[in-house]
Design a protein around this nucleic acid. Sequence first.
DNA 1: CCATATTGGATCGATCATCA
DNA 2: TGATGATCGATCCAATATGG
Length: 278
Amino acid sequence: MHLRKIDTVNLTEALGEESGGGIHPYHEILFISEGVAALKWMGQDYLAPAPALFLLPPNTPHLLVKQSPACKIGYIELDMRCSADFLDLSHAALWNRMQSDKDPQLPELASIYESACRMWDSLSPQSPYKAIAEDLIMLDIRKLLLMIAYFLRARESQSIYISDSFQIKSDTNERIQTIIRYMESNYYKQITVNLLASHAHLEVSYFIRAFHKIVGKTPLQYLHDLRLNAAASFLQTTKMSVQHITEAVGFQSIHYFSRLFKQRFGVSPSLWRSRHTL
DNA sequence: CCATATTGGATCGATCATCA
DNA sequence: TGATGATCGATCCAATATGG
Protein backbone atom coordinates (compact mmCIF):
# COMPACT_ATOMS: atom_id res chain seq x y z
CA MET A 1 0.00 0.00 0.00
CA HIS A 2 1.33 3.45 -0.80
CA LEU A 3 -0.01 6.97 -1.04
CA ARG A 4 -0.80 8.08 -4.57
CA LYS A 5 -1.96 11.51 -3.56
CA ILE A 6 -2.89 13.36 -0.42
CA ASP A 7 -4.10 16.92 -0.17
CA THR A 8 -6.44 19.33 1.53
CA VAL A 9 -8.71 21.67 -0.37
CA ASN A 10 -10.30 24.82 0.95
CA LEU A 11 -13.42 25.44 -1.07
CA THR A 12 -14.47 29.04 -1.21
CA GLU A 13 -17.52 30.58 -2.85
CA ALA A 14 -15.36 31.57 -5.80
CA LEU A 15 -14.92 27.96 -6.80
CA GLY A 16 -18.57 27.48 -7.69
CA GLU A 17 -20.74 24.55 -6.83
CA GLU A 18 -18.83 21.51 -8.05
CA SER A 19 -15.72 20.67 -6.16
CA GLY A 20 -14.38 17.59 -7.85
CA GLY A 21 -14.53 13.89 -8.31
CA GLY A 22 -14.19 11.34 -11.07
CA ILE A 23 -13.36 7.72 -11.44
CA HIS A 24 -9.99 6.04 -10.85
CA PRO A 25 -8.66 2.60 -9.98
CA TYR A 26 -7.47 3.67 -6.52
CA HIS A 27 -8.97 3.55 -3.06
CA GLU A 28 -9.84 6.95 -1.69
CA ILE A 29 -10.54 8.41 1.73
CA LEU A 30 -12.40 11.70 1.75
CA PHE A 31 -12.74 13.81 4.88
CA ILE A 32 -14.97 16.85 5.25
CA SER A 33 -13.46 18.83 8.12
CA GLU A 34 -15.46 22.06 7.80
CA GLY A 35 -18.77 23.00 6.22
CA VAL A 36 -21.26 20.79 4.44
CA ALA A 37 -20.77 18.76 1.28
CA ALA A 38 -22.74 16.19 -0.68
CA LEU A 39 -21.12 13.15 -2.18
CA LYS A 40 -22.67 11.71 -5.33
CA TRP A 41 -21.66 8.07 -5.29
CA MET A 42 -23.21 4.86 -6.57
CA GLY A 43 -26.29 6.70 -7.72
CA GLN A 44 -26.93 8.14 -4.26
CA ASP A 45 -26.48 11.59 -2.77
CA TYR A 46 -24.85 11.59 0.67
CA LEU A 47 -25.38 14.99 2.28
CA ALA A 48 -22.88 15.29 5.08
CA PRO A 49 -22.05 18.07 7.53
CA ALA A 50 -18.52 18.09 8.96
CA PRO A 51 -17.05 15.99 10.36
CA ALA A 52 -17.70 13.34 7.75
CA LEU A 53 -15.49 10.65 6.35
CA PHE A 54 -16.19 8.81 3.10
CA LEU A 55 -14.54 5.59 1.97
CA LEU A 56 -14.43 5.09 -1.79
CA PRO A 57 -13.37 1.73 -3.22
CA PRO A 58 -11.57 1.84 -6.60
CA ASN A 59 -13.40 2.31 -9.89
CA THR A 60 -16.39 3.90 -8.23
CA PRO A 61 -17.28 7.20 -9.92
CA HIS A 62 -17.75 9.95 -7.34
CA LEU A 63 -18.45 13.65 -7.28
CA LEU A 64 -18.29 15.97 -4.29
CA VAL A 65 -20.55 19.00 -4.31
CA LYS A 66 -20.08 21.83 -1.86
CA GLN A 67 -23.25 22.66 0.10
CA SER A 68 -22.09 25.53 2.32
CA PRO A 69 -20.27 28.81 1.54
CA ALA A 70 -17.08 27.52 3.16
CA CYS A 71 -16.07 23.91 2.99
CA LYS A 72 -12.77 22.28 3.79
CA ILE A 73 -11.93 18.77 2.69
CA GLY A 74 -8.98 16.43 2.75
CA TYR A 75 -8.49 13.46 0.49
CA ILE A 76 -6.11 10.55 0.13
CA GLU A 77 -5.76 8.29 -2.88
CA LEU A 78 -4.23 4.92 -2.06
CA ASP A 79 -2.59 2.36 -4.26
CA MET A 80 -3.41 -0.78 -2.31
CA ARG A 81 -1.99 -4.04 -3.59
CA CYS A 82 -4.46 -5.93 -1.45
CA SER A 83 -8.06 -4.70 -1.37
CA ALA A 84 -8.63 -6.78 1.75
CA ASP A 85 -6.94 -3.97 3.70
CA PHE A 86 -9.81 -1.67 2.73
CA LEU A 87 -13.50 -2.06 3.56
CA ASP A 88 -15.46 -4.04 0.99
CA LEU A 89 -18.09 -2.22 -1.03
CA SER A 90 -21.10 -3.10 1.10
CA HIS A 91 -19.38 -2.00 4.31
CA ALA A 92 -18.05 1.15 2.66
CA ALA A 93 -21.58 1.90 1.45
CA LEU A 94 -22.98 1.24 4.92
CA TRP A 95 -20.41 3.56 6.46
CA ASN A 96 -20.90 6.27 3.82
CA ARG A 97 -24.67 6.17 4.33
CA MET A 98 -24.11 6.76 8.03
CA GLN A 99 -22.26 10.00 7.30
CA SER A 100 -25.54 11.72 6.46
CA ASP A 101 -27.22 10.72 9.66
CA LYS A 102 -24.84 10.28 12.55
CA ASP A 103 -24.03 11.54 16.00
CA PRO A 104 -20.40 12.74 15.84
CA GLN A 105 -20.39 13.01 19.65
CA LEU A 106 -20.80 9.25 19.98
CA PRO A 107 -17.49 8.23 21.62
CA GLU A 108 -16.71 5.55 19.02
CA LEU A 109 -17.31 7.99 16.16
CA ALA A 110 -15.59 10.92 17.89
CA SER A 111 -12.37 8.87 18.09
CA ILE A 112 -12.56 8.06 14.40
CA TYR A 113 -13.09 11.70 13.39
CA GLU A 114 -10.29 12.88 15.70
CA SER A 115 -7.92 10.39 14.10
CA ALA A 116 -8.97 11.55 10.65
CA CYS A 117 -8.45 15.19 11.65
CA ARG A 118 -4.89 14.48 12.80
CA MET A 119 -3.96 12.57 9.64
CA TRP A 120 -3.72 15.67 7.51
CA ASP A 121 -1.92 17.56 10.29
CA SER A 122 1.21 15.53 9.54
CA LEU A 123 1.44 17.40 6.25
CA SER A 124 1.51 20.79 7.91
CA PRO A 125 4.78 22.72 7.34
CA GLN A 126 4.83 23.25 11.12
CA SER A 127 4.83 19.52 11.83
CA PRO A 128 8.07 18.44 13.52
CA TYR A 129 7.63 15.04 11.88
CA LYS A 130 7.13 16.31 8.34
CA ALA A 131 10.07 14.20 7.09
CA ILE A 132 8.26 10.97 7.96
CA ALA A 133 4.78 12.30 7.29
CA GLU A 134 3.97 9.65 4.70
CA ASP A 135 4.92 6.76 7.00
CA LEU A 136 2.86 8.29 9.80
CA ILE A 137 -0.12 8.71 7.52
CA MET A 138 0.09 5.09 6.37
CA LEU A 139 -0.11 3.98 9.99
CA ASP A 140 -2.96 6.42 10.65
CA ILE A 141 -4.87 5.00 7.67
CA ARG A 142 -4.53 1.44 8.94
CA LYS A 143 -5.67 2.57 12.37
CA LEU A 144 -8.64 4.43 10.91
CA LEU A 145 -9.75 1.50 8.77
CA LEU A 146 -9.44 -0.88 11.72
CA MET A 147 -11.55 1.40 13.89
CA ILE A 148 -14.26 1.77 11.25
CA ALA A 149 -14.34 -1.98 10.55
CA TYR A 150 -14.60 -2.67 14.27
CA PHE A 151 -17.33 -0.06 14.67
CA LEU A 152 -19.39 -1.59 11.85
CA ARG A 153 -18.84 -5.14 13.11
CA ALA A 154 -20.06 -4.16 16.54
CA ARG A 155 -23.22 -2.76 14.99
CA GLU A 156 -23.93 -5.71 12.77
CA SER A 157 -26.37 -8.28 14.07
CA GLN A 158 -25.31 -11.90 14.14
CA SER A 159 -27.14 -12.87 10.96
CA ILE A 160 -27.83 -10.80 7.90
CA TYR A 161 -31.58 -10.20 7.88
CA ILE A 162 -32.40 -7.51 5.35
CA SER A 163 -36.15 -7.59 5.99
CA ASP A 164 -38.60 -9.82 7.79
CA SER A 165 -40.26 -11.03 4.62
CA PHE A 166 -37.16 -11.91 2.64
CA GLN A 167 -34.12 -13.32 4.36
CA ILE A 168 -30.75 -13.45 2.68
CA LYS A 169 -28.15 -15.97 3.77
CA SER A 170 -24.67 -14.64 4.22
CA ASP A 171 -23.48 -16.93 1.39
CA THR A 172 -25.86 -15.22 -1.04
CA ASN A 173 -24.80 -11.86 0.35
CA GLU A 174 -21.15 -12.67 -0.39
CA ARG A 175 -22.02 -13.73 -3.92
CA ILE A 176 -23.87 -10.48 -4.51
CA GLN A 177 -20.92 -8.50 -3.14
CA THR A 178 -18.65 -10.35 -5.57
CA ILE A 179 -20.99 -9.43 -8.42
CA ILE A 180 -21.02 -5.78 -7.29
CA ARG A 181 -17.24 -5.69 -7.39
CA TYR A 182 -17.30 -7.34 -10.79
CA MET A 183 -19.75 -4.71 -12.08
CA GLU A 184 -17.66 -1.87 -10.70
CA SER A 185 -14.56 -3.11 -12.44
CA ASN A 186 -16.25 -4.16 -15.68
CA TYR A 187 -19.15 -1.72 -16.08
CA TYR A 188 -17.91 -0.73 -19.54
CA LYS A 189 -18.13 -4.30 -20.87
CA GLN A 190 -21.18 -6.07 -22.31
CA ILE A 191 -22.94 -7.34 -19.18
CA THR A 192 -26.33 -9.04 -18.99
CA VAL A 193 -28.34 -9.90 -15.90
CA ASN A 194 -28.34 -13.53 -17.00
CA LEU A 195 -24.55 -13.49 -17.08
CA LEU A 196 -24.34 -11.90 -13.62
CA ALA A 197 -26.85 -14.38 -12.17
CA SER A 198 -24.92 -17.32 -13.60
CA HIS A 199 -21.65 -15.89 -12.21
CA ALA A 200 -23.38 -15.75 -8.82
CA HIS A 201 -24.68 -19.31 -9.28
CA LEU A 202 -28.20 -18.06 -8.55
CA GLU A 203 -31.43 -18.39 -10.48
CA VAL A 204 -32.14 -15.11 -12.32
CA SER A 205 -35.34 -14.08 -10.56
CA TYR A 206 -33.88 -14.87 -7.17
CA PHE A 207 -30.65 -13.05 -8.04
CA ILE A 208 -32.56 -9.90 -8.97
CA ARG A 209 -34.62 -9.96 -5.77
CA ALA A 210 -31.60 -10.61 -3.58
CA PHE A 211 -29.60 -7.90 -5.33
CA HIS A 212 -32.44 -5.41 -4.90
CA LYS A 213 -32.78 -6.19 -1.21
CA ILE A 214 -29.08 -5.72 -0.56
CA VAL A 215 -28.29 -2.81 -2.85
CA GLY A 216 -31.64 -1.03 -3.03
CA LYS A 217 -31.85 -1.15 -6.81
CA THR A 218 -31.97 -3.80 -9.54
CA PRO A 219 -28.72 -5.06 -11.09
CA LEU A 220 -29.42 -3.17 -14.30
CA GLN A 221 -30.26 0.06 -12.47
CA TYR A 222 -27.04 -0.29 -10.51
CA LEU A 223 -25.07 -0.89 -13.70
CA HIS A 224 -26.65 2.13 -15.36
CA ASP A 225 -25.80 4.31 -12.38
CA LEU A 226 -22.17 3.24 -12.64
CA ARG A 227 -22.15 3.95 -16.36
CA LEU A 228 -23.93 7.30 -16.12
CA ASN A 229 -21.64 8.49 -13.33
CA ALA A 230 -18.62 7.48 -15.36
CA ALA A 231 -20.09 9.19 -18.44
CA ALA A 232 -20.62 12.40 -16.45
CA SER A 233 -16.98 12.27 -15.41
CA PHE A 234 -15.87 11.76 -19.01
CA LEU A 235 -18.07 14.64 -20.17
CA GLN A 236 -16.65 16.92 -17.51
CA THR A 237 -12.99 16.03 -17.80
CA THR A 238 -12.40 15.07 -21.45
CA LYS A 239 -13.20 16.25 -24.97
CA MET A 240 -14.46 12.79 -26.03
CA SER A 241 -17.55 12.81 -28.27
CA VAL A 242 -20.85 11.66 -26.79
CA GLN A 243 -20.71 8.67 -29.15
CA HIS A 244 -17.24 7.77 -27.89
CA ILE A 245 -18.30 8.17 -24.25
CA THR A 246 -21.39 6.04 -24.90
CA GLU A 247 -19.13 3.19 -26.01
CA ALA A 248 -16.49 3.84 -23.34
CA VAL A 249 -18.98 3.35 -20.49
CA GLY A 250 -20.62 0.29 -22.04
CA PHE A 251 -23.84 1.52 -23.65
CA GLN A 252 -24.71 -0.08 -27.00
CA SER A 253 -26.73 2.82 -28.26
CA ILE A 254 -26.08 6.54 -28.08
CA HIS A 255 -29.83 7.03 -28.37
CA TYR A 256 -30.61 5.06 -25.28
CA PHE A 257 -27.65 6.56 -23.41
CA SER A 258 -28.81 10.05 -24.27
CA ARG A 259 -32.30 9.32 -23.02
CA LEU A 260 -31.14 7.76 -19.75
CA PHE A 261 -28.70 10.60 -19.17
CA LYS A 262 -31.47 13.16 -19.52
CA GLN A 263 -33.72 11.19 -17.17
CA ARG A 264 -30.97 11.09 -14.57
CA PHE A 265 -29.41 14.55 -14.89
CA GLY A 266 -32.30 16.52 -16.37
CA VAL A 267 -30.38 17.72 -19.43
CA SER A 268 -28.83 16.09 -22.48
CA PRO A 269 -25.15 14.99 -22.32
CA SER A 270 -23.86 17.85 -24.45
CA LEU A 271 -25.79 20.46 -22.49
CA TRP A 272 -24.60 18.93 -19.22
CA ARG A 273 -21.03 19.17 -20.52
CA SER A 274 -21.39 22.83 -21.47
CA ARG A 275 -22.61 23.59 -17.93
CA HIS A 276 -20.11 21.47 -16.03
CA THR A 277 -16.84 21.53 -17.96
CA LEU A 278 -13.99 22.17 -15.54
C1' DC B 1 -24.03 20.24 -46.18
C1' DC B 2 -22.41 16.83 -43.18
C1' DA B 3 -21.48 14.89 -38.76
C1' DT B 4 -23.33 14.43 -34.47
C1' DA B 5 -27.03 14.63 -31.05
C1' DT B 6 -31.90 14.10 -29.72
C1' DT B 7 -36.52 12.20 -29.82
C1' DG B 8 -40.71 9.16 -31.03
C1' DG B 9 -42.55 4.73 -31.68
C1' DA B 10 -42.40 -0.40 -32.06
C1' DT B 11 -40.60 -4.58 -30.33
C1' DC B 12 -38.90 -7.80 -27.16
C1' DG B 13 -36.18 -8.94 -23.14
C1' DA B 14 -35.88 -7.81 -18.07
C1' DT B 15 -38.21 -7.41 -13.89
C1' DC B 16 -41.98 -7.96 -10.71
C1' DA B 17 -45.68 -10.41 -8.31
C1' DT B 18 -47.42 -14.52 -6.99
C1' DC B 19 -47.78 -19.24 -6.05
C1' DA B 20 -45.87 -23.77 -5.12
C1' DT C 1 -35.56 -21.22 -4.12
C1' DG C 2 -37.83 -22.03 -8.65
C1' DA C 3 -41.56 -21.40 -12.18
C1' DT C 4 -44.78 -18.65 -14.61
C1' DG C 5 -47.56 -14.89 -16.47
C1' DA C 6 -48.10 -9.83 -16.52
C1' DT C 7 -46.04 -5.54 -16.79
C1' DC C 8 -42.36 -2.44 -17.40
C1' DG C 9 -38.42 -0.72 -19.41
C1' DA C 10 -34.30 -1.34 -22.71
C1' DT C 11 -33.14 -1.33 -27.31
C1' DC C 12 -33.27 -0.35 -32.10
C1' DC C 13 -34.62 2.17 -36.20
C1' DA C 14 -35.97 6.20 -38.38
C1' DA C 15 -37.02 11.01 -38.37
C1' DT C 16 -35.69 15.42 -36.86
C1' DA C 17 -32.75 18.98 -34.73
C1' DT C 18 -28.39 21.27 -34.00
C1' DG C 19 -23.80 23.06 -34.76
C1' DG C 20 -19.47 23.73 -37.30
